[in-house]
Design a protein around this nucleic acid. Structure first.
Lengths: 102, 102
DNA sequence: CTCATAGTTCAGGAAAATAGAACTATTGAA
DNA sequence: TTCAATAGTTCTATTTTCCTGAACTATGAG
């Protein structure tokens, strides 16, 4: 977690798909697996792309993926990132939740 | 400013050069022109690239560029972004100021 | 073992970033 | 006005990164 870079976090969340994935996971929604998100997207995004997006989020230190049987469960690492960059994730999630325009 | 998107802000600041430029400008340092930043970089970054970086920051709504004679003076739009995304810029700048490693 | 589900890796084509060269804009001097 | 200098932008070709279908790996059920 010491290696987590601000640059990587901002890059990871600058993509709308990754931002949406992270917001879901951080929000504690039930959609925590790749395939669950894939079905939410109604297959607009191929699974290889989703896999890459999850990888970017993992490498940025934003999520952790643990295998449970045949699937991976993703959980956010908000608390750890919070220690390193206080207020950052909260501010970004708050900005994301904001209605984007009238 | 209504059109400013979170995605664009995160993308703009996910590049180390742009982050450095923005931090300087937001910090009210004297380095506010392209060429001033170019000399700080000791010409490691060509001016066409710097021009593009400033353009990305402008289009993200993070800075404003006004011509004064032969040069452009760049000022941050922190206050305006703050209205739209409260706490966001402050959190990012704070994270950027943090020493990046033990 | 075989099949099904979940996800990763590979490879190529598409899209975006980089930077040298040429161009535009403004000012000051001759 | 014309020339030169400074400050940035635009153009274009190259490099880099991203996207995604196909093939592959991993786990569990029958």
């Amino acid at each position: 977690m010491d290696e987590v870079r601000l640059e990587a976090i901002l890059h990871a969340l600058s993509d709308p798909v990754r931002m949406a994935i992270f917001a879901e996971i951080a929000g504690g929604k039930c959609v925590q697996t790749c395939s669950a998100f894939a079905s939410v997207c109604e297959r607009l995004i191929p699974k290889s792309s989703l896999s890459q997006h999850f990888k970017v989020l993992r490498e940025a230190g934003l999520i952790r993926s643990e295998r449970h049987g045949v699937e991976l469960r993703n959980t956010s690492r908000c608390a750890e990132v919070e220690k390193r960059f206080p207020g950052l994730i909260a501010a970004i999630l708050k900005a994301h939740a904001r209605p984007s325009r009238v």
